[in-house]
């Protein structure tokens, strides 16, 4: 590895160390996600006033917009991890990239479904082929393509390499999704929340939205780390550290069952 990378990064990226680290971080991330999510839902569903045009239907925003942000954020992260895995062949980067795809697909799916449920009462249609909606659908297909390509190879590392290429090429879609509302005349509204300049939203509605955004970030960490732990175990199943975990976890029932089975076979012989 390049020597400008600090030693602790190198140490952390070794599978047994990351397995342990992720196991410690995961419950905290999930706890924070649940607490912040509950606060955001209370703020969004109870405290925030109804919209003067959309009534209470606008309350879908508190899950729709954070999910849409996560769909794009996770895609970007997946593409960066894919790039790292292709260039430096770091096993952990490969696992992070491939296990981010299902989470990103889940958030993109939520975005499309909640958007559809919001579109019906407000636009009078579940679906329309407008630029924002179409590019979001393409994003879902890119995620599904990455997942499918990864699983279509007999050798999983080969599959991960092919899928990483697709993930990197597909990054072109991320700015298209983001800017589609500016570049084309769409039915979908423009951005309400802005990083630069004032947001077009009242504070009562803005804080639950931003809290939910932070909650979904923590959820992503919790879900990703669980997935990475699972993957590291099955990738390294021949190694000693995994065997120790398997031995410690088993309430010895599987082991004794295996032994009994073998003894029985022995007896029959």
């Amino acid at each position: 590895m390049a020597n400008w990378i600090p030693l602790w990064v190198h140490k952390l990226s070794s599978p047994p160390n990351f397995y342990r680290f992720a196991g410690v971080v995961r419950p905290w991330a999930l706890g924070l996600a649940l607490i912040l999510g509950a606060i955001a839902l209370y703020g969004g569903l109870v405290l925030a006033p109804a919209d003067y045009q959309q009534g209470d239907a606008y309350r879908i925003i508190f899950i729709h917009v954070p999910s849409a942000w996560m769909g794009l954020f996770i895609y970007g992260l997946m593409a960066v991890a894919s790039f790292i895995s292709l260039v430096w062949r770091i096993k952990l980067a490969e696992v992070v990239a491939m296990e981010s795809a299902p989470i990103g697909a889940a958030f993109t799916f939520i975005t499309l479904v909640t958007g559809s449920l919001w579109g019906k009462p407000m636009w009078g249609t579940w679906w329309t082929w407008d630029a924002r909606l179409t590019s979001e659908l393409v994003l879902l297909f890119l995620y599904l393509g990455v997942i499918g390509l990864y699983h279509s190879f007999e050798d999983r590392r080969q599959g991960a390499r092919a899928a990483a290429f697709l993930a990197i090429i597909g990054i072109i879609n991320v700015p298209i999704v983001h800017f589609s509302v500016n570049w084309w005349n769409t039915l979908h509204q423009g951005s309400t929340v802005r990083i630069l300049g004032p947001s077009h939203i009242s504070t009562d509605m803005l804080w639950p939205l931003l809290t939910m955004m932070v909650a979904t970030k923590f959820y992503y960490i919790a879900s990703l780390f669980g997935r990475v732990r699972t993957d590291l175990l099955s990738m390294e199943s021949g190694k000693d550290w995994v065997r120790q975990i398997a031995g410690a976890h088993g309430s010895a029932d599987a082991v004794s069952a295996g032994r009994a089975e073998a003894a029985e076979r022995e007896a029959r012989r």
Binding site: V242, G250, G258
Partner: peptide
């Protein structure tokens, strides 16, 4: 996965 690994180890 862990269950499978355990039975493999036992075998």
């Amino acid at each position: 996965n862990l269950r499978e690994l355990r039975s493999r180890m036992a075998r």
